[in-house]
Write a protein that binds this DNA or RNA. Structure first.
Lengths: 341, 341
DNA sequence: CTGAAAGCGCTTACAG
DNA sequence: CTGAAAGCGCTTACAG
């Protein structure tokens, strides 16, 4: 039975010092004397003291928490990123709040409302699809320097961001398929307007050009990142007269949908066509056939994002801080790709 | 540029009433006069007032947030449940905090620490694998009535819980396979010691008995809920002399791993063996073959859990409240099952 | 290095 | 129905 929670007062009484000294000892141990430090530590233990966060937050005007904004809580792509963010934050005694952009929108709250002194000290946005208006108002606010994008970003805004090497990953994919002997390579894209879609599509076209490979317009198949779009893309591929021998999909989900639909129509991967994805989500290795993909280290993306945001929160004038981190990707070769037959 | 955030004082001044009246108007609109209500509403709009949560929390000794405890943040099974919890909470102006049990453990904090007045008002635990000791100390605490389990639970403890009809789901699965004509049915279980594992396994055995089907001991294959365990189970199945014609897996991931491994060895589902899962995760419908499964409405699980917890938080003495909710499951028939050939 | 004291922005008995 | 006043538990200049 936890009776009454001990307060600073209780600790001060037990340690025979003032509350000011207890507070100092706890937050700036180096400014008090050794003996005080010991006495206070002892009193904290004896009383079972735990800080009252509301009181501290009210006094310091800090929330000691960070808000993570997702497009969709139910998308498994984000869970590992959250794990990374959460690890980093909890280490610092910060909490992670989570909201989905849809939900924020529905509730009629504005994003800026979340950057209240006492709701969240900062914000990590994993959704590049936010309204330009919303972002503009955020950019103009005084709290703009405590907003950071991860994975996705929005061109034309000044927020710092953490992302993976989308270009290099795409180059690696195309080069790998080329090395296997493929000359007719198609690309299934992400959703129109998405920055990742453009980044990967542009890199795809550039790399095809560099390798002097022919690229028919119909070989760029419009999709989004979903399984369903992958299925549709497969139907498109099936209907083609001159079928590409390899397909590079902008996400693993697309690749899985693509392969699934193909298989329903009697085609086999990689015998009839090589297929690869992007992301290397957990399931990629277990898929049949196991998916060749471009791996993003999502744990590191999360940890890096938290790290960068916290640096900004801690530094009042952080203009000199790095405003972008681009994390490495790697090619993971599995069973869904082979030399053309 | 948001200059200074308006306080209650500012609103009071503009509305020409006391801060007490503003506070009352905002939290108990029915106790003030109509005209006051209007004046205050107007002043709130004019000043752009937003409540300072730290101040309110300090005063009311409430955190206005709920902690959700997961075994593993990176497990996609939980995301839809979180979405459901989050929807319900945000509607009430409550925030959702998230932590993983592993992380809590590593940080050396005790669970009870989270139920601080000002960290979280309640806790939803999605992990039935918590230490008995940890739970005991939680159970004895005065805050025990603000702890609730969802999906999983721990036998022998008194916490309320939200769960799905594990027994009925299992019965439906076995009956369905039986109706298809299967007489030799195996079960791949969840992890040893897990309540869901036992619940489903017991129901499986009971149903097999009821249908007067033979059940060889080796047809209960020990697994956990993972893809990898499904692969191992498939190897076990392959090595059997007298192979069951249908396999009921305790999770979709198990079923997918099972099918994947089978396919690598040249077996085909459902031609060589019918396989079904449990959960109906998003991917089940897209898997090849699309997975027959027992559907849990995870959104509803989340919403119900939040609903029940909030009822307890709001009711000082909630002993009369429902202490369990068992949510319906449904059989979803897809392509991974058929009559035995 | 330490203490007395003010004050962060709310809510809520207590009077009226 | 409304106001004056106390107080939630901290932190931090300001003195000493």
């Amino acid at each position: 039975m936890t009776s009454k929670t001990a307060t600073l007062q209780d600790v001060a009484r037990v340690a025979s010092v003032s509350t000011a000294t207890v507070s100092r000892t706890l937050s700036h141990p180096d400014v008090v004397s050794e003996s005080t430090r010991i006495r206070v530590a002892e009193a904290v233990r004896a009383t079972g003291y735990r800080i009252n966060r509301a009181a501290r937050n009210l006094r310091t005007k800090r929330a000691h928490s960070v808000l993570v904004l997702l497009p969709d809580l139910a998308n498994p792509f984000f869970s590992t990123i959250l794990e990374g963010i959460s690890r980093n934050l909890s280490q610092r005694g910060y909490s992670m709040l989570i909201a989905s952009t849809k939900q924020v929108h529905d509730s009629g709250e504005r994003l800026i409302d979340y950057l209240d002194d006492v709701r969240a000290d900062g914000m990590i946005i994993l959704d590049g699809g936010l309204d330009a208006d919303v972002l503009k108002s955020l950019e103009d606010a005084s709290q703009a320097d405590r907003v950071l994008f991860a994975c996705e970003w929005v061109d034309g805004t000044s927020f710092p961001s953490v992302r993976c090497e989308n270009r290099k990953g795409t180059q690696a994919a195309v080069t790998y398929l080329h090395d296997l002997g493929h000359r007719k390579i198609a690309h299934v894209t992400g959703p129109e307007g998405n920055v990742l879609m453009h980044s990967r599509k542009d890199a795809f076209i550039a790399e095809m050009t560099r390798l002097e490979l022919a690229l028919k317009p119909e070989w760029i198949i419009a999709g989004d990142f979903s399984l369903a779009a992958g299925c549709l893309a497969a139907q498109t591929w099936i209907a083609m007269e001159d079928r590409p021998t390899a397909v590079f999909c902008a996400s693993d989900q697309l690749a899985m949908g693509f392969i699934a639909e193909l298989s329903r129509h009697g085609f086999s991967v990689p015998d009839d066509v090589s297929v690869m994805g992007f992301d290397d989500i957990d399931l990629a290795a277990q898929f049949i056939p196991a998916l060749t993909s471009i791996r993003q280290d999502r744990l590191m993306i999360g940890e890096t994002a938290a790290e960068m945001l916290m640096a900004r929160i801690m530094t009042p004038d952080g203009d000199h801080l790095e405003s972008a981190a681009v994390l490495p990707v790697s090619l993971v070769i599995r069973e869904s790709t082979s030399s053309p037959s």
